[in-house]
């Protein structure tokens, strides 16, 4: 009852609770929050205190003293640390309602990976309720991504969407507001970073952090040969000498480093195409595959998939926010037509 009263002063939120970033979309206001899913926790007299959340906490990753731990509470698209996720959600929900006089109690729609188990879904639902939400709805990530990318999901034509997130890559074939086929592989932006770290250690004998690897990926990373070669100066700790050394990496090297995770994504996309019903496969062959998620920003990844599958591949506008925006639209759809977009 009290929650409902507080709800009058809260907005409906669509949350893309991702492994790497959490985005919140509010109806009529757009994306209001885009922060890394990182929480820094300070141990104080045996109790845990949240030190920082989001951007601030991410800056602390790998740079913390003994009593502070910066953790990412989500792993592979699902909750790894229930309590910390709850705290993080609470912080984000409050941040969105900064000018509110009341403690917010919004209706919340959260995107979940399509192959998440009942236990994982329940964990997400419970943590959102614990964070103060008065009603929690779940939607499959690729469905939200497809709606956010502007695909006509309600029509009787097949659309294929590949959402390359931080922890997972979700592949789904969608028709008539439902997911016909879906697959999820635990390869995403994090695996790209890891691959770069490993490559640098192997070939340069130097250790770099995840944050540096991410910067390398964003600045010179590419998925398909042929475009101009870019370079970047990187500093890392040399394993043999034990002192920081500077060296230069180029985009061809990064392409080589990313071969393994990229091959995994290509393989998953191919197997999805293999298993799609023939009518939908022909629809997809005609219109093409749509890429969303942060991974879609990797240079020339569309060309790689296009080359490998022989289909046109399109990167959606603003791929990072597709899922959150799609979730917002899905909430409107659910309200208007009283349908549930969670097919499983």
């Amino acid at each position: 009852m009290f929650k409902r009263l507080r709800g009058v002063f809260s907005n409906d939120l669509s949350i893309d609770l991702g492994t790497a970033n959490t985005l919140i979309y509010v109806r009529e206001r757009g994306i209001v929050l885009d922060e890394p899913s990182v929480v820094a926790i300070r141990q104080h007299n045996g109790s845990k205190i949240v030190e920082a959340v989001g951007v601030e906490a991410k800056r602390m990753l790998g740079r913390t003293p003994g009593n502070i731990t910066a953790i990412r509470p989500l792993k592979d698209g699902v909750i790894a640390d229930f309590q910390v996720t709850e705290k993080m959600l609470q912080h984000f929900i409050r941040k969105v309602h900064e000018n509110s006089w009341f403690q917010p109690s919004p209706r919340v729609l959260i995107c979940v990976p399509c192959l998440s188990t009942e236990v994982e879904k329940r964990a997400i639902r419970e943590s959102a309720l614990g964070a103060g939400a008065r009603e929690v709805r779940l939607i499959e990530e690729p469905m939200a991504a497809a709606i956010g990318a502007g695909l006509r999901v309600e029509e009787a034509t097949g659309s294929m969407v590949v959402d390359i997130g931080g922890g997972t890559t979700e592949i789904a074939i969608i028709s008539l507001n439902g997911v016909v086929y879906s697959d999820s592989v635990r390869i995403g932006g994090d695996r790209f970073d890891e691959a770069i770290v490993n490559y640098v250690r192997r070939n340069y004998g130097s250790v770099i952090g995840d944050a540096t690897a991410e910067r390398i990926k964003q600045e010179i990373g590419c998925a398909f040969p042929g475009s101009e070669v870019r370079e970047i100066d990187v500093r890392g700790r040399n394993l043999a000498e034990g002192v920081p050394r500077s060296f230069t990496l180029n985009s061809d090297e990064i392409l080589e480093a990313l071969q393994e995770p990229l091959a995994g994504i290509v393989q998953a996309v191919k197997s999805a195409l293999e298993q799609s019903p023939p009518e939908l496969a022909s629809d997809i062959a005609e219109s093409g595959i749509v890429l969303t998620g942060g991974g879609a920003l990797l240079r020339d990844i569309d060309q790689l998939l296009s080359e490998e599958t022989g289909l046109p591949v399109i990167v959606a506008d603003d791929p990072l926010t597709c899922v959150a925006r799609g979730g917002g639209k899905a909430m409107d759809l659910m309200d208007k037509r009283n349908i549930d977009l969670l097919s499983s």
Partner: peptide, 13 residues
Amino acid sequence: FPGETFIKGYLRA
């Protein structure tokens, strides 16, 4: 075309 997303995608390509 089946949507603006595709039009923009094709134009880009």
